[in-house]
Design a protein around this nucleic acid. Structure first.
Length: 589
RNA sequence: GCCUCGGUAGCUCAGUUGGAUAGAGCAACGGUUUUCUAAACCGUGGGUCAGGGGUUCGAAUCCCUUCCGGGGUACCA
């Protein structure tokens, strides 16, 4: 529809002898209470025409109708010029663009982008917060790929550190050799239990010390369990065989558990980094920064950067004893990733509690003169809160990822059985469908909200399966597939004759036509929510169309064939859009 | 304190580079099935876009300010 903007520019030039930029032509969809499909806002042009908005609109409208065969008529209301495009224009749009197999796929742009997400700790199972992270990362990766990027999906696993030693220590002291097999528990769950147990026992020790007259801080610092965990970390860093063996053993349990969860969730990675391999990185960057004068060393030997000129604080980048802090590792890891892949952009999917950290990280890399630092982006998302507030692993107030998925699938089963539409399915088909619907509901629920907004999840209120939901969209797809089958629709569209269109048909074509721009917009904003809200709109318009006209019993053969073409194109857009969200759509439900 | 992100219907959320009378879903109420899948469709009610000021032909959107909520401000990650 770009021709309208450029023709309007031409109109203003011919009518008022003023050359305006194409971007100053404000095109929007005509609101449904007015006649037409495309609206030009003409207020800005009155300063060139020196006439009333109404008159200006009429003059431009006359010009457009005279110069474009696609524009059938117009009407003017105040500063709004509403254009009606011809039915053959819409038909052709469906034919030549929307029905193409590669519709919505943007040509390769030759750029490479890395998306890092998930990044779990190996001391506890994944919870709802991780689910949001995983779905966001996976979806953004799919969207960027559709937008023409080469995408590398990475996971930086936090597999070492004091928190890992805590669960190791608790298992060693109280575990009596328990294994996932002996306990009948997923490995990540088992290890998580020991992490919680550590905390429980530790608190007891702290209380005892406090009762003996120690201050809170002293007690926390001097509790035997804490000292032992710290000792274990030192042994780990020294490469102590026994500690390393235990670490490997327990981590492998956790990885087995994570693997299961990722698979259920439908999440994959191209490259996994482990912090145990990267935690020593970054020290040479510290040297680099010191020699470039970006960092400075204090008397106690610690290394800092002064960011007060940028409105931030002074930040420590290396401890006085020469060991790394979080940002030291991240500096090194950023360099490692770039050396490995030479990507143009790198996206970090990390919660908004780390906004400040990433601001500092990117700023430091820029100050160090890293050319690639410009391409770094923190995709910050809001926390998932419960009605009671934050989820806390140690307090057991978390919504477990596996449990949640299982509940959703159960609910899908229940709902589907009530409706009784798939009684002829095999048990295996049923299982697949319940999973598709249950996870579709969950994923859609989490992805339809703008990433940066915080999300409230009430475990007592089940996620809907009706209305603005994943299953609604999945249902629409299944419905279309059913019609296509009954209408003997093949793999390619029918060729149809010109005809006049119903409003519901025009509206649907218009919506479908937006898909490519929607993908571009979602990629530019790193926002699956844009896709989610769009595909809902498509499904809604299809259901309206489906309800208002008869497809298989259309008055004429060519009308029926056109409606089948339109249905097929809709199914494809729904399927493609949902795939960008990591949601599958069924043939029947 | 300072930095930062939010605040739109009872609830959960949309709302493009500023555009027409601010939209959906859920919940409530009413209607639609001898017709292609009723997980659907149609209708009714529901709003001080947190408050105030400013910018202009026009502000939920941009600027200032106040209030409320989240997060951050560690030699934690």
């Amino acid at each position: 529809m770009n021709f309208i903007a450029s023709l309007t520019v031409q109109a203003i030039k011919d009518l008022y002898q003023v050359k305006v930029d194409e971007k100053s032509v404000n095109l929007q969809e005509t609101r449904k209470e007015f006649e037409g499909q495309v609206t030009i806002v003409t207020f800005p042009f009155t300063k060139y025409s020196k006439k009333s908005p109404e008159q200006t609109g009429s003059e431009i409208g006359d010009y457009l109708v005279a110069h474009a065969a696609e524009i059938a008529s117009y009407n003017v209301i105040k500063g709004f010029l509403n254009l009606s495009l011809t039915d053959s224009f819409w038909l052709q749009l469906l034919d030549t663009e929307i029905s193409k197999p590669d519709f919505g796929e943007i040509p390769k742009n030759g750029k490479r982008v890395m998306v890092e997400y998930s990044s779990p700790n190996t001391n506890k199972p994944l919870h709802l917060g991780h689910v949001r992270n995983n779905l966001l990362g996976f979806s953004v990766a799919a969207i960027l790929e559709a937008a023409g990027y080469e995408v590398i999906k990475t996971n930086l696993v936090n597999d070492r550190g004091i928190h890992i030693c805590k669960s190791m220590l608790a298992w060693e002291k109280y575990g009596k050799g328990e294994t996932p097999e002996s306990a009948g528990l997923k490995g990540d769950k088992l290890v998580g239990n020991y992490y919680v147990l550590f905390d429980k026992e530790y608190k007891k020790e702290v209380d005892l010390l406090k009762a003996a007259g120690k201050s809170e801080e002293e007690a926390k610092r001097e509790a035997p369990l804490m000292l032992q965990a710290q000792e274990m970390l030192r042994q780990w860093e020294a490469g102590d065989d026994e500690v390393i063996d235990l670490w490997k053993r327990m981590n492998s349990w956790v990885y087995d558990g994570f693997e299961e969860t990722y698979e259920k969730m439908g999440i994959t990675f191209d490259k996994v980094y482990y912090e145990s391999n990267t935690y020593l990185l970054g020290k040479d960057i510290i040297e680099e920064g010191l020699s470039k004068g970006v960092f400075f060393r204090k008397e106690d030997n610690s290394v800092w950067i002064d960011l007060t000129a940028d409105g931030l604080d002074q930040k420590l980048v290396l401890r006085g004893d020469g060991t790394s802090v979080y940002i030291t590792q991240d500096l090194g890891t950023a360099q490692l990733k770039y050396d490995d892949y030479r990507m143009d952009n790198s996206i970090y999917v990390v919660g908004n509690e780390q906004d400040y950290h990433f601001k500092v990280l990117f700023l430091i890399l820029k100050k160090l003169g890293k050319s690639w630092a410009e391409g770094l982006y923190h995709l910050s998302y809001g926390m998932v809160d419960l009605p009671s507030g934050k989820m806390k692993s140690r307090e057991g107030t978390v919504v477990d990822a596996d449990d949640l998925m299982a509940e959703m699938i159960d609910t899908a089963k229940l709902r589907t059985e009530e409706l009784g539409k798939v009684d002829d399915f095999s048990e295996e088909e049923k299982g697949g469908l319940y999973e598709m619907i249950g996870l579709g509901a969950l994923k859609y629920f989490l992805l339809k909200v703008e990433p940066k907004k915080r999300l409230l999840f009430d475990p007592n209120e089940s996620i809907d399966f009706q209305g603005h939901t994943g299953p609604f969209i999945q249902y629409t797809h299944a419905r279309i597939k059913s019609v296509l089958t009954k209408g003997n629709y093949g793999t390619t569209p029918f060729s149809v004759q010109p005809m006049s269109l119903e409003a519901s048909e025009r509206d649907l074509i218009k919506e479908l036509a937006k898909f490519t721009d929607i993908v571009k917009g979602a990629a530019a904003d790193y926002s699956p929510a844009v896709i989610a809200n769009y595909v809902y709109e498509v499904a809604k318009l299809y259901n309206k169309f489906y309800h208002e006209v008869s497809i298989l019993k259309a008055e004429e053969k060519s009308l029926k064939e056109f409606r089948l073409n339109l249905s097929a194109a809709t199914a494809t857009v729904i399927q493609k859009a949902m795939r960008l969200l990591g949601i599958q759509v069924p043939e029947r439900m």
